[in-house]
Design a protein around this nucleic acid. Structure first.
Lengths: 146, 146
DNA sequence: TATTGTTATACTCTATAACTATA
DNA sequence: TATAGTTATAGAGTATAACAATA
């Protein structure tokens, strides 16, 4: 009896020649890898992005963070609640309707750990790209969304 | 009273200089754009990917498609059920446990429409990238996941 | 023993609509 | 009138575990 599988790994596959497809696959693969490394500090990618923006912009509002990261206001609510419950950020009233976000001491500490992971990861990403293509990656990507 | 927003669009934002972040943003932006265009033919991106692979690989199995697209076997089930319910694919027993997938006439027709959209979209994607970076995009992306 | 197809389930991310209160 | 924050909800995508039947 023939125990070969049907199309084991010898399929015709034109998809990888589509830049949009390659973009999605690359983003999925790298996001999964980074998410896995960030479990070590108990944070998600969006958590780290928020913490970085709060660190760089004292008393920033949830709405401004959301605009910058392209996260809907409504979806910022549970995200910030988790960060606050974890003691990483604090919210202080700015006026009657806005609250400013700031890192707590624990937040600064956790962010420092996360930065180590993220920056190591980003450096490895670039190293995977052949040198002749490396300087073109970021400009090409920015042209696709900025 | 000062009616300026708190950090309207003048935030310090170091994130776009991270390739991994730019990759995610570019992938999200382009995926949303393509998904929006594909609503015109009532298909999702994953549907089109599956239809393309089925067209190129007659009597391919669900498992082989899943391996190629990095979609879990379990998640192929509802996807293929939708395509079959829509009359776009047919399944014929290969042996006692496997079934081969093939496009129906309606499936070939729908795929032709979807291809127009996808190929137009992919061409526009490349046009958005400055010419000096353009030939480097695909090789750089492939280095990140293949 | 490994693989196929399947069910069930859960978690994350994302999107929308609606509401209150304030600028 | 526009914005901030919130609640509720729904749709996708994704991941795991488990099972029966077959290779």
């Amino acid at each position: 009896m023939d125990n070969s599988h049907h199309y084991g790994s010898l399929m015709r596959d034109p998809l990888p020649s589509y830049p949009g497809y390659a973009l999605r696959r690359a983003a999925n693969a790298t996001a999964a890898e980074l998410a896995s490394r960030l479990t070590e500090v108990g944070l998600r990618q969006s958590d780290v992005s928020v913490l970085i923006l709060v660190a760089e912009n004292p008393a920033v509002t949830a709405s401004a963070i959301g605009r910058s990261l392209d996260i809907q206001r409504a979806n910022m609510v549970p995200l910030l609640k988790r960060l606050e419950d974890a003691g990483l950020i604090a919210r202080e009233p700015i006026d009657g309707k806005s609250r400013g976000l700031d890192l707590t001491a624990a937040g600064r500490e956790r962010l420092a750990q996360a930065r180590q992971i993220v920056e190591g990861f980003e450096a490895e990403l670039l190293e995977r790209v052949p040198p002749e293509h490396r300087p073109h990656l970021l400009p090409a990507l920015e042209a696709l969304w900025r």
